[in-house]
Structures are given as C-alpha cells and as structure tokens.
C-alpha cells in the first residue's frame, strides 16, 4: 500500500513538471463554480437500507465561510435551520426552540443519514489553498473531454490527503471527484452531472456523493434552482436569525 502512495506521489510530481497549467484549470473551475454569494434550492435524495427520502432546502451562502440553510420539507424537517460561520455549526430546531452547536465528535456524524458528514459541509477552503495540483492527463468521460487532475495536500489539517478530479475540458466544471486516504485508499467518490448554464456559468445541477467504504447507493443532491450574486442581508448569518 505504501509503495502505491509513493508511486502516486511520484507520478504527480512528474506530471507537475510537464503540465504547469493544472493550477490554471482549477482557477477556471473556481471562477466558474464560486461566486460572491448564491442562493439555491435543492433536494437531497438519501437512499437508506429500507427507504429513500427526499429533503428539500433553501441555502444562502457567501463565499465559502458563511452559509445558512433552511429545510422546507418533509414536514418533519420543516423549519430546521443550519448556520455555518467559519468552522462553527449551529442547528436550530423549531419544535424545541433550541440552538444546538455541533462540535467535536458530532461533526463526523452523517447529516440526516446521508453520505455526507457535517464536517464535509464545513470544509470551506479553496482546493488551491489546500492542494498542490498537477495535470495527470486528458481523457474522455462519457462523451466529454476531461482534464484529469491529481491533487495532493500541501497542508496538514486536511480530511483527504489526495484527490483526483475530472474537469470538463470545455466548460471547466468538475464531472467527477475521488477522495483518497493517505494510503491511497479510495474513500469517497462524487459525480457531477446535468451541467447547465446559469447566469453565464456552467454549473452541475446534480451531484451524487458516495462513501466508497459503505454499502449503499449514495446520496443524490439535486439543485432545483440557483441564483448567483444576489442581495443577501448580513443579519441572516447570525444566530439570532436562526430563531426567526
């Protein structure tokens, strides 16, 4: 296993030497995907062992640091709100009128039985801040030409040591992302599809997360509407707004 890692790293450095434009690709992806702020409505489809559930929510986010999500349906979740500020996360429940801070160990728990943990939602740094990227090659993914990027962590405090990203060569939208452990073990896979143009950007409207170590068919995230660069009042990102 360790040998694989060494080889993997060696390949990456080799690739880095020959393809200097990996960072450029990521920057383009970044420009495409991120915005000053955005508001989107989405459905999360969670496949449990017994049943499949769909949870609808509306999210407001500014950069990567602040976000506010309100769950709309089903009735059970309606009115539950989640606030993220930097590396802190609070959840408000209307039924108990309580604000609970999710911290420490709880962050590693799955969100509503999905393949995503609270922590996955908190990771807000840009890929280029965390990873050294290299272009590993160009290939076809379905009928799209893609760049394959290999990313290796350059900071210590990162959940996934390495990533592999398939970026649409024309639209600069990620189409597939694989997350690896230090040993090279594949841990999670994310697939992006249903790429649409919104306000002049290309954006994947369907994202499927899959924890590769667990059985099951993963969690599907569908964006039903998305708007960029809107007026979002600042007070929304405060604990006081959770109770409103």
């Amino acid at each position: 296993m360790r040998k694989v890692v060494v080889l993997f790293v060696a390949l990456i450095s080799f690739a880095a030497f020959t393809s200097p434009d990996a960072k450029e690709i990521l920057d383009k992806v970044d420009r495409n995907m991120s915005s000053k702020n955005r508001i989107f409505e989405s459905s999360m489809i969670i496949h449990g062992r017994r049943a499949t559930r769909t949870i609808n929510s509306i999210s407001y986010s500014v950069g990567n640091k602040k976000s506010f999500t309100e769950y709309l349906s089903p009735a059970r979740e309606q009115g539950t709100k989640m606030l993220k500020l930097e590396d802190k996360l609070w959840i408000y429940s209307p039924s108990t009128d309580r604000i609970i801070q999710i911290s420490g160990h709880m962050l590693r728990q799955s969100v509503m039985g999905s393949d995503l943990s609270y922590e996955d939602m908190l990771d807000d740094r840009k890929l280029t801040e965390v990873y050294t990227s290299t272009l590993a090659g160009k290939e076809k993914l379905g009928d799209r030409d893609v760049f394959v990027l290999d990313l290796v962590a350059k900071v210590d405090d990162v959940a996934y040591f390495a990533q592999k990203i398939w970026v649409d060569a024309e639209r600069f939208v990620p189409l597939k992302q694989e997350l690896f452990a230090k040993s090279g073990q594949l841990l999670k896979r994310t697939e992006f599809s249903d790429v649409k143009q919104v306000q002049g950007r290309w954006f994947p409207m369907t994202i499927v997360y899959k924890d590769m170590l667990k059985e099951g068919s993963g969690t599907e995230f569908r964006i039903t509407s998305i708007k960029f660069d809107q007026e979002i009042p600042e007070y929304l990102f405060s604990k006081a707004s959770l109770k409103k």
Partner: peptide, 16 residues
C-alpha cells in the same frame, strides 16, 4: 435537557 440524534428515517431529532 435536549436529546439530539437522528430519527428512524435519518432525520434530525430534537426533543427537550
């Protein structure tokens, strides 16, 4: 005291 966990369906459970 509030118990926070998940319901049978995986939803968030809050109950004081």
């Amino acid at each position: 005291i509030t118990i926070f966990g998940s319901t049978m369906n995986g939803s968030m459970m809050f109950k004081t």
